[in-house]
Design a protein around this nucleic acid. Sequence first.
DNA 1: GTGGTCTAGACCACA
DNA 2: GTGGTCTAGACCACG
Lengths: 127, 127, 127, 127
Amino acid sequence: MIFVDNKSRVPIYEQIKEQIVMLVNTGIYKPGDRLPSIRNLSNQLNINVNTIKHSYAQLETEGVINSVQGKGVFIAENPLENERIVKGVLDDLDRMVRSAMARGVSKEQIKDLIDRIYETGENYDKC
Amino acid sequence: MIFVDNKSRVPIYEQIKEQIVMLVNTGIYKPGDRLPSIRNLSNQLNINVNTIKHSYAQLETEGVINSVQGKGVFIAENPLENERIVKGVLDDLDRMVRSAMARGVSKEQIKDLIDRIYETGENYDKC
Amino acid sequence: MIFVDNKSRVPIYEQIKEQIVMLVNTGIYKPGDRLPSIRNLSNQLNINVNTIKHSYAQLETEGVINSVQGKGVFIAENPLENERIVKGVLDDLDRMVRSAMARGVSKEQIKDLIDRIYETGENYDKC
Amino acid sequence: MIFVDNKSRVPIYEQIKEQIVMLVNTGIYKPGDRLPSIRNLSNQLNINVNTIKHSYAQLETEGVINSVQGKGVFIAENPLENERIVKGVLDDLDRMVRSAMARGVSKEQIKDLIDRIYETGENYDKC
DNA sequence: GTGGTCTAGACCACA
DNA sequence: GTGGTCTAGACCACG
């Protein structure tokens, strides 16, 4: 499953891109694997088709995926020639942690939150 | 006292909000203290009056400050004791941690980030 | 559906806020319903976009509505279940009753006013 | 004591005017009585001298009071020739009660609030 | 001088 | 099309 945060400053199409790259990075997606169709993903995530299209289009120009008319979308042969960095999220996290600190939340509280999320929310599947 | 990064993805009014909260949190601003007037800050930062107004308005509805017609803007009595806002911050954190997880950031990475933030911030009066 | 009195001492954005809350309260708007777009309402009422935006922004921080980029503005899940806002309303009431008392309004006068309001409003679905 | 609400839509100078008229109306102030000096009232209420001046000036042009250079300010002989109506407060109250109702506050809750205020807050003195 | 409200219009990102 | 941000400038009420 791909996780999308509507309210993030990071646009949805970037979130999707980053997560697909990550799935490739961790070996969950391998070259030649087929990605979910645009409409399929659109339905799953309840997100506009155009947004998914936007993500896929950028991934294609970056050489991460290939879309084949009438067949589907596939992971490219050398998908990670241009390595990508997950930076936006960490910036966001940084700001939010500072915000929470300023508002009196303790370090322990935050770490507990993280543990809880990572334990319960194992939301990695091949989708 | 306040700095603004025009090029950040974080809107200016939020940058200002966060910095004022920080100044309150560190004890530099105390209840009853007067903030710079919207026009004054507007000139200092070379930012439109309305943008400053926007920041101040949100801080007021969050109970951090009180603005008084014709007098100025002042730090509230219990500026950071607002359960609802703290809850909102935690919700935001929750979303972002999930987002980071989905994008392949490890639990340890996040916890390191937190440690770093809390350590550098520990010089503050209140934490 | 929404009316505005330009000459009132009550600012337009507050009039709009109150009427939307009322529409939610009476069950005319239900969670998930879509509100008119800011531009649409702006045209209908012949009021500047920013003024509408102002109303919607406050309602969002109060948890009554959610606005989603590119999609629209929607009634939140529990639009009126916000302890903090209710507390704020009661504080306002407190101030105004004291004000009325100081200006010679009798207890009975106020109670009559309340009865009248609650009676005429009793046709509403939820009260 | 005169009661002033900083956050009311009714301007402070009007609140003061109304309350003095009310004190005359109820016979607490009689023709010839001396009002507190501008500075005295300014200190008591922690309100700017100009604001008090504004109230007194209007009351004088309306014939309610006479100010005598170097002696003080006194209630006029026929102070209430032009009868005044306390309307602003009631409008405010009306709006707030509706607001509270919309937010789920019960009629009884409000009436309790009123009883409590009127019982404990007998803040009428000659000042 | 202060804050409060409103308008008009611009540009952006997203669906 | 949608909302989000920012600017410029106006007028008001209040201190």
